[in-house]
């Protein structure tokens, strides 16, 4: 594997559940991220998929150091990001940036596009001297496909897709090496979604970016990712190349997830085998013992309740299931 730009090891993030007004008592923990490890190679896109509550957004917050990890390490170019402070932390902000999901709340409504995209330069004045900032902002707008003359407009004068482009321009301003994309296209319409996905693709080649691409839409993730990690209740249950995950999935959850995605082809109606999971995702405050997926899994045996399956190589790539095997009918491709 090529050199890793981001190494994540045993990352844990628990949020305390508190009651009480002045003196708060902790009555439990939301185990949002519970022991996640992966590497991100330079220039690579790692897709992270999972349903709501699986911890993928918390993962993004922790990788950005917006939240402190409960334990575990994240190394960026070999340095532990949780050990950084002051100047070093500011330096890190220039290297890792984020694109957020909601194009309506991710831009301050009281700031013009010029102020929004120019803010990174105000915070890091050494990147661009004052006189050059306006020109740089206009360059960035051009790069993301917006009219540079719209620099004085406010966010509410743009459509969802255009706002997402503004968010991408802001993330690009400091020339980061890694961009965490937290559901960047899930709030957009189909036709606009394709435009933004193509833009992310082009920018990756142009600026030599590495992406952690978080999404719940498996088709979108497949389209952009080199490797994919599937998360369930705070843990990675399966990780591998795009082909391994989509064509040879071995974890029952991955298989169920893939089979549940509606395929836009009426001819396949009734001919595809769809694995119907029962019930909802259990609460992350009290996850099931052993394998967390066992409460919804059709393969569950006693061992699944007692022993947590490790994420180790099974049938060619890591999968956290005691009974990992390919399911004959769900492979797509």
């Amino acid at each position: 594997m090529p050199e890793a730009i981001l190494e994540v090891r045993d990352l844990v993030k628990h949020f305390p559940v508190q009651v009480g007004v002045l003196f708060k008592r902790t009555i439990g923990h939301v185990k949002a991220v519970d022991g996640v490890s992966f590497d991100l190679a330079r220039g690579e896109t790692l897709g992270v998929v999972g349903e709501s509550g699986c911890g993928k957004s918390t993962l993004a917050q922790v990788l950005m150091r917006l939240e402190k990890a409960t334990s575990g390490t994240v190394r960026f170019e070999g340095r532990d990001i949780f050990g950084l402070a002051g100047q070093e932390l500011r330096r890190l902000r220039r290297d890792i940036q984020i694109v957020l999901q909601d194009p309506y709340t991710s831009l301050n409504p009281r700031m013009t596009v010029g102020d929004l995209v120019g803010e990174p330069f105000e915070i890091h004045p050494d990147v661009a001297p004052k006189g050059e900032r306006r020109r740089k902002v206009q360059e960035l707008l051009d790069v993301v496909g917006l009219n540079p003359e719209h620099i004085n407009r406010y966010p509410h004068q743009f459509s969802g897709g255009q706002r997402q482009r503004i968010g991408i321009a802001r993330a690009l301003a400091l020339r980061p090496k890694v961009i965490i994309c937290d559901e960047p296209v899930s709030a957009l319409d189909v036709s606009v979604q394709a435009q933004v996905m193509n833009l992310l693709d082009t920018l990756q080649a142009e600026f030599d970016l590495s992406y952690v691409f978080i999404a719940h839409d498996l088709s979108v993730v497949r389209h952009l990712s080199d490797r994919v990690a599937v998360m369930y209740l705070g843990k990675v249950v399966e990780i591998g190349t795009d082909e391994q995950i989509y064509e040879h999935p071995t974890h029952p959850y991955t298989q169920a997830l893939l089979s549940a995605v509606p395929v836009p082809d009426p001819e396949l109606r009734g001919r595809r085998e769809v694995i119907r999971l029962t019930g909802d995702v259990p609460s992350p405050v009290n996850p099931p013992s052993g394998c967390r997926f066992r409460t919804r899994c059709w393969k569950a045996r006693d061992v699944c309740a007692q022993e947590e399956p490790a994420l180790v190589d099974r049938l060619g790539h890591p999968s956290a299931c005691h009974f990992a095997e390919e399911h004959p009918h769900v492979a797509v491709g």
Binding site: L66, R93, R94, Q101, N108, E122, I123
Partner: peptide, 17 residues
């Protein structure tokens, strides 16, 4: 709670900003 505050923190903005 708004995402724009998150984005600003991600850019390294201090409390005063």
């Amino acid at each position: 709670q708004q995402d724009y505050v998150k984005a600003a923190r991600g850019l390294g903005a201090g409390p005063l900003r």
